[in-house]
Design a protein around this nucleic acid. Structure first.
Length: 824
RNA sequence: GCCGGGAUGGCGGAAUCGGUAGACGCGGCGGACUUAAAAUUCGCUGGCCGCGAGGCCGUGUGGGUUCGAGUCCCGCUCCCGGCACCA
């Protein structure tokens, strides 16, 4: 085209049009969701961000495609709810408070302000009227209410438990704050001191009550990966409990209970092992063994569980001097203690079967304990085993169980023990109860009062919220920060009115995020967490998106909360999220972005340079969303260029002339594009969706440059392109839609439908092969009969050359695809 | 060690009910426009051979099934993620 045409259309200036449309949409409340809208509901949710400071490119990568999906559902005629909020309690605010000498509240709400503004620049279709901030009293009042409900239903309990204690920071650390990776395992992430264990009274939730139900994923459509991770985390093991009696009761107990998945090996037991923390260790230990046992226990307790699990697997342990009887042979079995037995799994006691367990084998070797074989490997010659044999085989040296397979033996032994009242079938889980106490300031206070007379008293619901005092001293002092507050702890017992003391721990922030998806439905309700009819209308969330790093934390806790709430009659559903999609991680130069690496991509810089639309598109285009990808400064140019081409395509009118042929071609391009874009957006394949639209743009430009186009078909094409682009690049789509004189807003138009007939091609490329090798490509009519296809193929000079006169033995014909002539 | 996921041009990635490998984009090369550059735009761009028509090779690696394999089966190598003394 002549260059002076270019002067005729205004340049594409995202910096000018994006803020203008954002202002207009907000003024018009375009994205406000009504609860009374009769259209089908669609609850689209993206994991709310933590108030960490600036919105980084990872937030954009998580949120922008989610916004595209929400906008698409809206265009499909659904009443879409797409809310946003902030996960605002937590340790980073306290750390910032300490290092920057600023109050956590100030720090957090300043970040909320900044992040709101940055989110608005993205042009996302959030309904801001439903925003929740978990550190608002209006919100955490109900977090505390949830605690009280769980307490009332016996799903919350208090017990003494070991916690990670940093002697330098003078505070308890969450497991996540203890370095786990090899070399530095068991150290504080802030000061690198060796973390100790301290016993503290802690609050727990009985998530283990729901272990089996949490293993049932049949009602939800989640990525296989997350399902597997949750299943492994819950770790259901079927086996048996086996009781080993004492000759005389010890501390009122007459037996040691062990859990095993290998009841079939019970005749191979040569010793028992207790975890050093096991309550029977003290009463069992013989007087002459006391010193050595106490020293071992002390050393074991000095290490954290994390440390114990990460040290090299050298077996250590000491003999207690006590013994128990074998339940089936009555043999005396020495009782040891060893730190390879974990106090928190099973019963904290293990039967040692050296021949058929690699850990027991190592232990027996270390301490010279007998290693009798009781499962015969195939072709076993009766010789001692060189290593633990854990495979299948027949039971031997096992009395009347000899000859049974491993599987048969497990059932038979468990049944026999049950008859004898010495145990029986049992199930064990890796999942532990959820420890929610935090000895920290910046969290929701646990609504509990301790009274000398009435013991543990829940705060009455009408007294909620228990406000977090603003004037607490939160610097690390070795005590829970609220404990040092002059008035917070002092309270009258709600039952007897005697002076009592408040609980001073706060709740794990994962509690706040376990129910936020319900609060969006009714964010300002001051009488209940969510109105029942709204929960019935909107739940479960139709589509949830977020990172896979929350697989066994947030996503598991949220499922637990929902099931508990259903059983308490609070919610009508047992699963919070019907569908889940995990986006991947965005990298820079193949590495995670971090301030210390100096490779953090700031979205604002790119919005200034190329516009939010280009940034959104690039994030969608750089690869499949679930695989993540690497940010490359150069590649984003391609998306910006494409937007410029779309801009020009729409605004520079082509030469028009009615034409059947041109109309057919343009409509075919259009409807093929709509079909591909629709199928791809449905599957969250945003990269190929955009590729389809780019191809259409390029093809339309070629049509235009080739001569006059059919005006009606052209207008349809351009409008369809804008509509398909609208969810992905909402600003330029709105601008072009307006410039075409179409009615505001493009975002309230219907997603275009494709007509299969218009999308269909009249001709196809038929691939011609000889013996499976490509020899020619023919353009033929759709649905060509085989005889004609064969004739056409054989007429090809190159095909004839390769046939070389040989007889065709077989013809493979896939209509509209390929014909393969097999010779020889 | 166990459980997932993956390996395709110079780069990011397309294509999996087995049927044209490399769509789309980046980068590169060449042309147009420009005093020049940038921007824009057009063409080419897996390797080797060939003037050309065309041929041979090619989806981590070694086998196999098939008229036909990136795709299915068996064996290996490497990379990423999760779990890790769970009895």
């Amino acid at each position: 085209m002549p260059s002076n045409d270019q002067a005729a259309i205004p340049p594409y200036r995202p910096q000018e049009i994006e803020p203008r449309w954002q202002g207009r949409w907000e003024a018009d409340a375009l994205y406000r969701t009504s609860d009374d809208d009769p259209r089908p509901r669609w609850y689209m949710l993206t994991m709310f961000p933590y108030t960490s400071g600036d919105l980084h490119i990872g937030h954009w990568y998580a949120i922008a495609p989610s916004d595209v999906a929400a906008r698409y559902q809206h265009m499909r005629g659904n009443n879409v709810l797409f809310p946003i909020g902030f996960d605002a309690f937590g340790l980073p605010a306290e750390n910032a408070a300490i290092s920057e000498n600023i109050h956590p509240h100030t720090w957090t709400y300043r970040n909320v302000e900044r992040m709101r503004a940055q989110l608005r620049r993205m042009g996302a279709s959030f309904d801001w009227t439903r925003e929740v901030i978990t550190s608002d009293p209006e919100y955490y009042k109900w977090t505390q209410w949830w605690f009280l409900q769980l307490f009332k239903h016996n799903l919350a309990y208090r017990k003494q438990a070991p916690a990670n204690w940093c002697p330098s920071c003078q505070t308890v650390l969450a497991n996540e704050q203890v370095i786990r990776h090899e070399g530095e395992a068991g150290r504080c992430e802030r000061c690198e001191s060796v973390v100790e264990t301290r016993d503290l009274e802690q609050w727990f939730f009985r998530i283990t009550n729901y272990a089996d139900e949490l293993l049932d994923f049949s009602a939800i459509d989640w990525p296989e990966r997350i399902v597997t991770m949750q299943s492994n985390w819950i770790g259901r093991s079927e086996g048996a409990e086996i009781h080993f009696p004492f000759d005389a009761p010890v501390a009122g107990v007459d037996r040691i209970r062990c859990f095993t998945t290998r009841a079939d090996t019970v005749f191979g037991v040569t010793y028992l092992v207790l975890a050093p923390e096991h309550p029977l260790v003290e009463p069992l230990t013989a007087p002459d063994r006391r010193d050595v046992v106490q020293e071992y226990v002390r050393a074991a307790r000095a290490a954290t569980e994390i440390e114990r699990q990460s040290i090299v697997r050298v077996k250590s342990g000491v003999f207690t001097g006590a013994s128990a009887r074998h339940p089936l042979t009555n043999r005396l079995l020495p009782i040891w203690i060893a730190d390879y037995v974990l106090p928190s799994y099973g019963t904290g006691a293990v039967m040692g079967v050296p021949a058929h367990d690699v850990r027991d084998f190592a232990f027996a070797r270390q301490f010279d304990l007998p290693i009798p074989t009781v499962i015969a490997p195939p072709d076993w010659d009766g010789a001692p085993l060189p290593e633990a044999y854990v495979g299948d085989g027949r039971m031997v040296n096992s009395g009347d169980f000899d000859g049974l397979s491993v599987k048969e033996g497990q059932a038979a032994v468990a049944a026999r023990l049950q008859e004898m009242d010495r145990g029986g079938p049992d199930v064990s889980y890796r999942l532990r109860d959820w420890l929610i106490s935090r000895q920290r300031y910046w969290g929701a206070p646990i609504p509990i009062i301790y009274c000398a007379a009435c013991a543990i008293v829940p705060v009455p619901e009408e007294d909620l919220p228990v406000l977090l005092p603003e004037d607490a001293e939160f610097l690390p002092t070795g005590e829970s920060p609220l404990a040092g507050h002059p008035t917070f702890t002092q309270v009258a017992c709600p039952q007897c009115e005697a002076p009592a003391r408040r609980e001073t721990d706060t709740m794990d922030t994962f509690m706040c995020s376990s129910w936020y998806m319900f609060r969006y439905l009714d964010p300002h309700n001051d009488r209940e967490p969510v109105r029942r009819d709204l929960a019935e209308k909107w739940l479960p969330v139709d589509q949830y998106t977020g990172g896979a790093e929350h697989a066994v934390m947030h996503l598991l806790y949220a499922r637990f909360f929902t099931k508990a709430a259903r059983d308490m009659g609070v919610l009508p559903v047992g699963e919070p999220f019907a569908r889940l999609f995990n986006q991947g991680i965005i990298l820079k130069g193949g590495q995670k972005m971090s301030k210390s690496r100096g490779n953090v991509v700031a979205p604002d810089v790119w919005v200034d340079k190329l516009g939010a639309d280009a940034v959104r598109l690039y994030l969608m285009f750089l690869g499949p969303w679930d695989q993540g990808g690497d940010w490359d400064d150069r590649n984003i140019q391609g998306l910006s260029r494409w937007l410029n081409r779309v801009w020009t395509l729409v605004l520079r009118p082509p030469e028009r002339a009615p034409s059947e042929e041109s109309a057919r071609t343009i409509r075919r391009l259009t409807h093929q594009m709509i079909r591909r874009a629709t199928e791809d957006v449905e599957r969250f394949r945003f990269n190929t969706m955009l590729a389809a639209m780019m191809e259409c743009t390029n093809a339309l430009a070629r049509e235009r440059d080739a001569g006059p186009v059919d005006g009606a078909a052209w207008d349809e094409a351009v409008q369809a392109l804008i509509l398909c682009l609208a969810p992905s690049a909402p600003h330029i789509a709105e601008e072009l839609w307006q410039r075409l004189g179409r009615p505001y807003s493009v975002h309230q138009q219907a997603w275009p439908a494709w007509d299969p007939e218009l999308a269909a091609s009249e001709t196809v490329t038929l691939v011609v092969q000889v013996n499976g090798k490509l020899r020619d490509r023919l353009t033929v009519a759709v649905g060509l009969p085989e005889s004609e296809a064969r004739a056409a193929a054989e007429a090809s000079a190159n095909v004839a050359a390769h046939l070389a006169g040989a007889a065709v033995r077989k013809v493979v014909y896939i209509p509209d695809k390929l014909i393969n002539l097999v010779v020889g």
